[in-house]
Design a protein around this nucleic acid. Structure first.
Length: 483
RNA sequence: GGCGCCGUAGCCAAGUGGUAAGGCAGAGGUCUGCAAAACCUCGAUUCGGCGGUUCGAAUCCGCCCGGCGCCUCCA
C-alpha cells in the first residue's frame, strides 16, 4: 500500500517517500498565543494530529514539530494592554492551548518550540541571508529582498504584479501603513527582523543583534524552528490554507535562499472551517471555541469526530446540527465496541465471516487513508465493517474467540488513527461507587423481571435513567452505558 | 481586477470516464414483557443549469448561475 499526499507545491497527488527511510520530519504551524484558538484553528491542529498518527500507524518514526508563536504584534499589544510582560501574557494562553489539545485527544508532538526560545537561530538565519545578499537592513530592521529570489511565488503561484499593487487591501487600510513596512525597497519584501519600538521594550520583547535591538518577523520563526528541529530539508510542512500566501511562500524563500537546498518536500494544507457560509476567523468575530461547545454539553469525542470526518481539502461547514449528527454516528461506533466486548465466545462455535469482514475493513480503511488521507472514505469502510459485523453478531450465538478478537483488533487499530473511541471512553467512564450502585440496581431489576414484575423492573430502569444510565437487555444479559 | 476552490438525497459527505460509498434524520418490518440496541427493506433514473466531446460523463471541455478562499492580521 502506498501512501500518497496532495502536495500544494506541485498541485498533484504524489507517493510519499521520506528523505530518510523509515523516518519522517513534519512541521505544523501552531497557534499565536494571544488568545485561545477557535474551532477552525483546531481543525488544522487535528489534521496535524491525523497526519502524525497515520504516519506512526504506517510504521514510520515521526519527528513532529508544532511551534507556538509567542512574539508578534498581537501578543505584544495584548501584553501592553494588560500591563504585563510578554512572557506573563502568553504563558497562560499556551497552557490553555495544551489543555485543549489534551481534551481533543491530540497525540503529543515531539516538541513544541516557542519563538522566543529560538531567537538565536533566527538571528543566525537572518545573518546568513544578509551575507548572501538576499536581505538588507534599514534603520535596524531587516527585510528579505524578494527580487533577489527568482523562485519566489512557486508555492502560491501568485501574480507578483498583483501583489505589488496590494490589491486585497481596502483603500483606507492601504493608507494606514505599518511603520515596519516603511523601509522596504519593494512592496513585496517582508520583514525578517523588526527594529525595537517602545511597545516592544515595554513588554520585554527585545533582543539584541549585530544590526541592533528588535524582535523577529513572523515568517522567520517557522523557518528557523523548522530547520533547527528537522534539518535544512524536511519532509512535511502543513497548516491552514490561509498560510499559503504569504507565510509559507516566505518561509520557502528565506530558507532556500539561506541554505541553497529545498526546504520542504510535501506541503499539505487544510481548507477552512466555515460557519454560516463564511470562514471562521477571529477578525470576523464569528468563531466558536472548544470551551463554548463543552459548556453547551458537547463531548470532545463528537467534536473531534466532526472536525476530522471531512476531507481536509474540502471546506467544512460547522453547525450544531452537524455536531449532533457526529454524536449519533459516534454513538453507533461505541455501541458496536460494546457489543463486541460483551459477545460471548465458545470453543465449539461454528465459524462465521466475521474474521474476513474484520480483515477487509482494515484493508479498506488503509486504502482510503493512503489516498491523501481520505477520512470520509475511511469512515465508510469503518461503518460497513460495523454493519456487516452487527449482522453476524445479531444472528449468531457464541462465536469463536479468535473471530471476536480479530474484530476487536480491527476496530482498535482503526481507532489508533481516528482516536475517537478512546476519547469517548474517557468521558463515558464512571466512578466505582456509581458502577457498583448500577450493578446492584440491575440485579434487582433482573430479579423483578424474573418474577415478571415488569412494573418494578421499569421503575428501576427509570431510576437508572434519571441517573443518566441506560440499560439494554441483550440475548446475553443486560448491559448498561451512560446516556 | 488577478489567482484558486466548491455546488452530489431533508441534512452531512465519498466518488474525477464505465453506469451514484458511508453517516444523521425519516418510513415500514423483525427481535423484545415493554424499551433500547441491532438487523432487514424503502429513498438521488440522477450529481447547480445549458450545450459539447465520447460507445459511455457526477467525473473531460465551453458558457451561465450560485457560494467561498487568498492577493502581505489569519489555522
Amino acid at each position: 500500500m502506498a501512501l500518497t499526499f496532495y502536495n500544494t507545491l506541485t498541485r498533484r497527488q504524489e507517493p510519499f517517500e521520506p528523505l530518510k527511510p523509515g523516518r519522517v520530519g513534519m512541521y505544523g504551524c501552531g497557534p499565536t498565543v494571544y488568545q485561545l484558538p477557535h474551532l477552525g484553528n483546531y481543525r488544522s491542529f487535528l489534521f496535524f494530529d491525523l497526519v502524525h498518527r497515520y504516519l506512526v500507524w504506517k510504521g514510520y518514526t515521526v519527528d513532529a514539530v508544532m511551534n507556538l508563536t509567542d512574539v508578534d504584534d498581537k501578543t505584544i499589544n495584548g501584553a501592553l494592554a494588560a500591563g504585563i510582560s510578554l512572557a506573563d501574557y502568553t504563558a497562560p494562553v499556551a497552557q490553555a492551548f495544551f489543555e485543549d489539545l489534551r481534551t481533543l485527544g491530540v497525540r503529543e508532538a515531539s516538541v513544541y518550540p516557542r519563538a522566543t526560545e529560538r531567537i538565536p537561530q533566527m538571528i543566525e538565519l537572518i545573518g546568513t541571508l544578509l551575507e548572501r545578499g538576499h536581505a538588507y537592513e534599514v534603520g535596524g530592521s531587516v527585510y528579505f529582498d524578494v527580487a533577489s529570489w527568482p523562485e519566489y511565488g512557486k508555492l502560491s503561484r501568485v501574480d507578483l504584479a498583483a501583489v505589488r499593487e496590494g490589491a486585497g487591501l481596502q483603500e483606507r487600510e492601504r493608507q494606514a501603513v505599518d511603520p515596519d513596512e516603511l523601509g522596504k525597497r519593494d512592496p513585496r519584501d517582508f520583514a525578517l527582523w523588526k527594529a525595537a519600538k517602545p511597545a516592544d521594550r515595554a513588554v520585554g520583547a527585545v533582543w539584541s543583534t549585530p544590526w541592533g535591538e528588535g524582535r523577529p518577523g513572523w515568517h522567520i520563526e517557522c523557518s528557523a524552528m523548522g530547520m533547527a528541529e528537522l534539518g535544512e530539508t524536511f519532509d512535511i510542512h502543513l497548516g491552514g490554507e490561509d498560510l499559503i500566501f504569504p507565510h509559507h511562500e516566505d518561509e520557502i524563500a528565506q530558507s532556500e535562499a539561506a541554505t541553497g537546498k529545498p526546504f520542504v518536500r510535501y506541503w499539505l494544507h487544510v481548507k477552512h472551517l466555515v460557519i454560516d457560509g463564511e470562514k471562521m476567523s477571529k477578525s470576523l468575530g464569528n468563531f466558536v471555541t472548544l470551551r463554548d461547545l463543552l459548556e453547551e454539553g458537547h463531548s470532545p469525542a463528537a467534536i473531534r469526530y466532526l472536525l476530522l470526518g471531512a476531507h481536509h481539502r474540502k471546506e467544512l461547514n460547522f453547525t450544531r446540527a452537524g455536531l449532533a449528527d457526529a454524536r449519533e454516528a459516534l454513538r453507533r461506533l461505541q455501541d458496536f465496541e460494546a457489543t463486541l466486548a460483551h459477545h460471548p465466545a465458545a470453543e465449539d462455535a461454528a465459524p462465521t465471516r466475521l474474521g474476513e469482514v474484520a480483515a477487509r475493513a482494515l484493508a479498506e480503511f488503509e486504502a482510503a487513508m493512503d489516498d491523501d488521507l481520505n477520512v470520509a472514505a475511511a469512515l465508510a469502510a469503518l461503518f460497513t465493517f460495523v454493519r456487516e459485523s452487527n449482522s453476524v453478531l445479531h444472528s449468531a450465538g457464541p462465536l469463536r474467540a479468535e473471530e471476536l478478537a480479530a474484530a476487536r483488533r480491527s476496530l482498535e487499530r482503526i481507532d489508533e488513527v481516528l482516536g475517537v473511541l478512546r476519547l469517548a471512553r474517557e468521558s463515558a467512564r464512571v466512578g466505582e461507587d456509581l458502577a457498583a450502585w448500577v450493578e446492584e440496581r440491575i440485579e434487582a431489576r433482573q430479579a423483578a423481571r424474573a418474577r415478571r414484575d415488569f412494573q418494578a423492573a421499569d421503575a428501576i430502569r427509570a431510576e437508572l435513567a434519571a441517573a443518566g444510565i441506560v440499560v439494554e437487555d441483550t440475548p446475553h444479559g443486560p448491559r448498561w452505558k451512560r446516556a
